[in-house]
Amino acid sequence: MERLEFGAALRQLREATAPATLGLPIGRRRTQGLRREELGVLAGMSADYVRRLEQGRSHPSAGVVNALARALRVGRADYERLCALAGYAAADGQVPTDLGPGATRLLERFTDTPMFVSDAAMNVVAMNSAFLALGHWELTGGPWDWNIAWRTFCDPVGGFKQSTADATDHEAILVARLRSAVLRYPADTSLAALVDEMRTRSRLFDTLWRTPRPVTVYESTGVFTDPDGDSVTLAGNLLAIPGDDLAALMLTAAPGSPDAAHLAEIVSGAGEPTIIKVGRSGPG
């Protein structure tokens, strides 16, 4: 059964891969996506072996799974799925931080919605100018200035406040995401150092790490206040971007509310919509 499922997943990925994205000529094609011969050449194996894999008549080694994943340029989620179906653990590696095309499109298309994209370790990777315009995120010069979990538990952002109920939901989400990241990327020393430091610095984080709360919603509300004292209440919704192991947080106001009108004013004053990539010490 596992061989059949692996074969079906491999064929689906092959047929969904556009030849042009791999630098191959398009020409006239009878089949959708890549030909088995093309995948075989890219992965260093015969087309017949690719056929046997897709038909569930052969079991791949871990090296073969890695070669196929590299040849198809699949995202982390699809790679992990192939590994699981083949009965192997995915390569540990480092937490990916590349801003993939899916995340870029979200930031480009929702220019009037404050949004940021974070990696699996909860580091902000990029944001749009609408998020930056909120003006609430002051920098302290620390090494984890742009880590959402660190700023929540160890170095709170002064311009962001939540009710007890919303803070409880937010904290549960952050701990659950970090625990999942540690399981997937046990070789990432930066992630391990972050978690160790947080457990040392925050009694609440250490308690939740040992006894995590269940995550019931992926939404919470907060009040964002800029340096001039102007505030707006926004709800944050977390959207997974599984192919690149990223997540986007979108901030919205209740339709027709004074907060929605205020948010529109804030965004309109931000100037030309842009995407800001973020580093450890601030926007770059």
Rank of each mutant, 00 (worst) to 15 (best):
I275L: 10
L22A: 14
D259N: 10
A8K: 10
T31Y: 01
A264Y: 08
A8V: 02
E197Q: 06
V157N: 10
L39R: 04
W144S: 03
M115G: 03
L191P: 15
K161G: 11
L234Q: 04
R57Y: 13
I148G: 05
R199V: 08
V157T: 07
A165G: 01
G27F: 04
L194F: 07
L24E: 04
H170Y: 11
P255N: 13
R203C: 03
L10N: 00
M122I: 09
S202G: 04
L13I: 00
S58Q: 15
V217Q: 13
D188F: 11
G27K: 04
L68Y: 05
L251M: 06
A9T: 03
L72Q: 06
L106I: 00
T17P: 00
T104C: 00
G102A: 01
E38W: 13
D244Y: 06
A133T: 08
D196F: 05
P273I: 12
R14S: 03
A47N: 01
D78A: 05
G159A: 03
L194N: 10
R280D: 14
M45E: 07
A47E: 03
G222Y: 09
L249P: 04
W146E: 07
F160C: 12
D230N: 14
L4Q: 13
A248L: 06
F153K: 05
A43E: 07
S231L: 02
E80V: 11
P60H: 15
V125P: 08
V278D: 15
A86W: 02
L53F: 12
I275H: 11
L82R: 02
A89G: 11
P273D: 14
A165T: 08
A181W: 10
C83M: 14
V124M: 14
A16N: 05
P214Y: 05
S220T: 05
R203K: 02
R81Y: 01
R179H: 02
L251S: 08
V95G: 08
E171V: 00
R81N: 04
D119V: 01
N128G: 07
G271R: 13
Q94D: 10
G75P: 00
T164G: 01
L10E: 01
S46K: 04
N128L: 05
A165F: 07
F110Q: 11
L85S: 00
L238S: 06
R35G: 02
G75L: 08
F224V: 10
S202H: 07
V223P: 06
P156L: 10
L239S: 08
A43P: 01
V175M: 03
P255A: 10
P186N: 10
P19K: 02
N147Y: 02
